[in-house]
Design a protein around this nucleic acid. Structure first.
Lengths: 373, 373
DNA sequence: GTGAAAGCGCTAACAT
DNA sequence: ATGTTAGCGCTTTCAC
């Protein structure tokens, strides 16, 4: 062995030590070094300490590329979400990453920015990195060639937020239709009759469509006429474009309650209504979906369907790791569909609807007072 | 060559094809396949199409583990942030990931949950994966052994949000002290004299401390007595614990304006004040820091120091990639410190302070009215 | 323009 | 309990 094999410095440049240098330094074979990392118990106590010492002096750090290549696994999971700018997905990522760290998995992330056509490339890239599995939210879980690919290649994956109805696919979500049904039923219970749904493009979010079905179900079941949904060109923040609210200027034209497919949209529409001179909840009640933490800080508090995003992420990761490890041990693949409980949070953005048919008796008196300086 | 080398299926199980299978299928050497991926021009036109054809039929996907091991680079950057639950960091990640995708880099993420002691392990893990560089926010950029490690090992990195003052470290941030100074000066300009700062633990966020210095500077420069900052045990959402606001019940004890070290804290405190029966901005004005998009949707709109989080992420990634590629070409390492512009956004959560020294003239009349049924 | 061959760091089967 | 060795998939000289 040449001197360079021991030395960490070559031409003054740091060369990261490999197990080879460690083995040389400790006077053992590379197999021993490798074993110490994988099954520490299988190495003699004094040999072990020698190797640990060598690792320390050389500041050895294993090279996962080598390990992954050889072992055929990477202890890395891939994540594909529409965007991290929407708190819901960010929370999911947070929950997922926390559990990943516990389980000693790493996380590689991509965003599709709600573009269905970007899903395939995102997954391809992750697969090139040989991630052991994928956690993802797709535009449409039923008709997804990306999911078909994963199925075909037997790559473990878990959907988050998507809730496949026809196909059998591992997923973690709330029951979107039921949750929307509950929310709209609550509005109906509070006296609302004219309830309209507002959503991003349905083709970019099967969840939004499922929620719309829940809306329809609630309306029809209560003998109410469903209104055509308002589809806006975004899933997150508005850009102060009020065209979609033009009809709201006429009180007879506008619904008494608005059910939004997510909280960012709900908060945006509340702001837009405000700018238009309409009050929430006095003129329009607003119900969101997601239950983002910031909604609770609003005044009036945002009513919303709470879904446990961090837990969705956490459970998805646990489910994925289980699938990965089952697969590695040659077990049969079990497909688990987790439906987590939702709750309808009622805040000040929704108020009971009272038919405005009688003018209050005291109004003249009030008018007298208000004409005073 | 045995038949198995050509065949993608072994024992009914899919075996991912390598360049070896592709080469065999196309009747060329593995070197040609490799060259086609790296310098497509160096391969003959007809050979190329043969190889492409083989790749297609075999559904070939390069194995980055092999490539990374051999090439010594991974086209992957590591990201270490306090949490993804805070919109600010989520936005930064979004900006960063978008540019990474453009540049064909992958992103591996970790959260420290504001625990300084977790920073080292997070970076170690990323380095074991042989990321080409790291983007990170640390608790304290001046005294960070993690950053010293990166410096020592010559791993390119870029800080985000951190703004080192003494040490020379590549970073992308706003000028925290100046930004806080501007915000507090604005409050003073609006008549506020009793201004207090509220922050998470300073030892977990050097930015918060720099902002406190900005607060101090503004107060002193205007001849005002700084108040002791309120340090609360969190950086994100409150858990409805109002102890820290006890003194606010007494009007003579409370400041007229509160400057919060971030928006989540500001929104939380606004909610807490509301629950305590205090009105924002009538009883207390509130100014945040970060300029998260949701703050603009609030009513009253959250006043805040806007920092361009997505751009911070985007620029950090561009800077990092530049550093990585400079280093690979053996160029000298240039250290760029980017200070991005901030703006003080004034919303309804702040109102001019008027000394309540004269009782309004009409008060008796009002009292008369209010004693009516 | 193409091929042969070495080797990146590591694991695991086999040997002792 | 430890060493020897083959080879994971790829890039990159060095030949021709």
């Amino acid at each position: 062995m040449s001197r360079q094999d021991v030395n960490v410095y070559i031409l003054g440049c740091i060369v990261r030590p490999s197990i080879k240098q460690v083995a040389l330094q400790a006077g053992v074979s590379i197999a021993t070094v490798s074993r110490l990392m994988n099954q520490p118990d299988s190495v003699g106590i004094d040999t072990a300490s020698k190797v640990y010492q060598a690792m320390k002096t050389l500041a050895f750090r294993p090279n996962f590329s080598g390990r992954n290549l050889r072992a055929g696994r990477s202890r890395t999971v891939g994540v594909v979400l529409p965007t991290f700018s929407n708190t819901v997905f960010a929370q999911c990522l947070q929950g997922l990453e926390t559990v990943a760290r516990e389980r000693e998995y790493s996380v590689m992330v991509t965003a599709t920015e709600y573009r269905q056509q970007d899903e395939a490339a995102a997954v391809e890239l992750l697969l090139a990195h040989r991630v052991d599995g994928v956690i993802l939210t797709v535009a449409d879980a039923e008709a997804s060639t990306t999911l078909d690919l994963l199925d075909h290649e037997k790559i473990p994956y878990v959907l988050v937020y998507n809730q496949p109805q026809q196909s059998v696919r591992p997923s973690v979500s709330v029951d979107n239709q039921l949750a929307a049904y509950d929310a709209v039923s609550k509005l109906i219970e509070l006296g609302h009759r004219q309830i309209q749904m507002l959503a991003g493009h349905f083709h970019a979010s099967d969840r939004a469509l499922q929620r719309y079905h829940g809306y329809l179900q609630a309306m029809q079941q209560h003998g109410l006429e469903p209104l055509a949904p308002i589809e806006v060109a975004r899933h997150t923040y508005t850009s102060l474009d009020f065209d979609y609210l033009q009809t709201f200027r006429d009180p007879s034209q506008r619904p008494s309650a608005l059910f939004c497919s997510n909280d960012l949209l709900a908060l945006s529409v509340m702001r837009d209504l405000r700018v238009l001179g309409l009050r929430v909840p006095d003129d329009v009640s607003v119900m969101g979906f997601d239950g983002i933490p910031l909604g609770e800080l609003m005044d009036p508090m945002l009513s919303s369907v709470e879904q446990p995003s961090e837990q969705i992420g956490a459970l998805a990761l646990r489910t994925l790791v289980t699938a990965i490890e089952e697969q590695q041990e040659g077990h049969p693949t079990s497909v688990a569909t987790h439906i987590l409980p939702h709750t309808v949070r009622l805040g000040g953005s929704v108020k009971p609807f009272v038919q405005p048919f009688v003018k209050p008796f005291v109004q003249p008196v009030i008018q007298l007072f208000t004409t005073l300086p």
